[in-house]
């Protein structure tokens, strides 16, 4: 398949079943809500070492937030409910509770609930209060700018993580511009995030390593500097590769985000230095979701 001169390799992205929770952070001013979102989704690029993959999903108009203040939605993906249950209170306690004027709400419904405010209420040292409004319990924790309002629990739902495509370009600058185009295209889609900053990572990995203590290591087949010494996937003139990683609430959203992202990159075309689009997989043996690029773009 060729789009605007760019070859789309006949391969697939291998993605995994994950667990997701959506939180809504509100604040007195939009900037403070975004700061809290940036803090709580920091160091959350990959479940390999961060525990969760997280990013801001979208800004929310005050008319649509629970407390009528400016807000943002943040999606958190993890490999298990247990891991989310461990990570969320820790991140909220250090990044949202600490951020002036913020309040925190669950942003999705689901049967499985994990603790939020119920876990961090003890910061109130006995002065915390709970309030049940319309069947939902909230914790009011006294802090130095007033009260931190935090919903007691949030829902956890099944999701899909690890959708991806690789951009092979003439050089690093071209590849960066392509990632910017992909990020801009994917950003408006609700229900998906690209957990790496700028949507892309340069350290695409393979499973395992020659060193026993590592579970993942560099994907040498896509390293331009090793092209002549390993079984490379790159050709002459391929100067840089970046991987766009996508997590979504379901497979359809991941598929949609991949298609829109790849189309945005292909619009730059060979004239813009884009040489090829491919995808990362592990031979199809690890992930339950296989997104074939030709089918995604059909």
């Amino acid at each position: 398949m060729i789009i605007n001169g760019v070859e789309i390799e006949d391969t697939f992205a291998e993605a995994f079943g994950m667990k997701v929770s959506r939180l809504i952070i509100t604040a007195l001013e939009p900037a403070w809500a975004k700061r809290a979102a940036a803090a709580v989704s920091g160091f959350a690029t990959s479940v390999i070492a961060c525990g969760v993959e997280a990013a801001m999903e979208c800004e929310i108009d005050p008319a649509h937030t629970p407390d009528g203040r400016p807000g943002v939605s943040v999606l958190f993906f993890s490999v298990s409910t247990k891991e989310l249950e461990k990570q969320l209170p820790r991140r909220i306690g250090q990044c949202v509770l600490t951020c002036p004027s913020t309040a925190l709400f669950s942003g999705m419904d689901g049967e499985r609930q994990i603790g939020l405010g119920g876990k961090i209420r003890y910061f109130g040292d006995g002065y915390q209060m709970s309030k049940v409004i319309n069947g939902r319990r909230f914790w009011r924790i006294p802090v130095m700018d007033g009260e931190f309002l935090c919903e007691d629990t949030t829902a956890v739902c099944p999701a899909v993580g690890g959708g991806n495509f690789l951009i092979i370009a003439r050089d690093q600058r071209t590849c960066l511009h392509a990632c910017d185009a992909a990020a801009e295209a994917i950003d408006p889609i609700a229900g998906v995030i690209a957990p790496f900053f700028g949507s892309a990572t340069r350290s695409g990995s393979k499973v395992g390593s020659k060193y026993k203590m590592l579970s993942a290591s560099t994907n040498e087949a896509f390293c331009p500097s090793l092209r002549t010494v390993v079984g490379s996937e790159l050709c002459d003139g391929d100067g840089a590769v970046l991987e766009v990683v996508i997590d979504g609430l379901n497979a359809d959203l991941v598929r949609q985000a991949m298609r829109i992202g790849i189309e945005a990159v292909c619009r730059l075309g060979t004239a813009g230095g884009i040489r090829k689009i491919t995808a990362g997989n592990y031979g199809g043996k690890l992930g339950q979701y296989h997104f074939r690029l030709h089918e995604v773009l059909a």
């Binding site: 629970p66 407390d67 203040r69 309030k131 409004i133 319309n134 909230f138 009011r140 007033g146 931190f148």
Partner: peptide, 12 residues
Amino acid sequence: VQIPHLALWYRW
């Protein structure tokens, strides 16, 4: 004082 949960209470 400012009581954040009043926003939810009023809306409900």
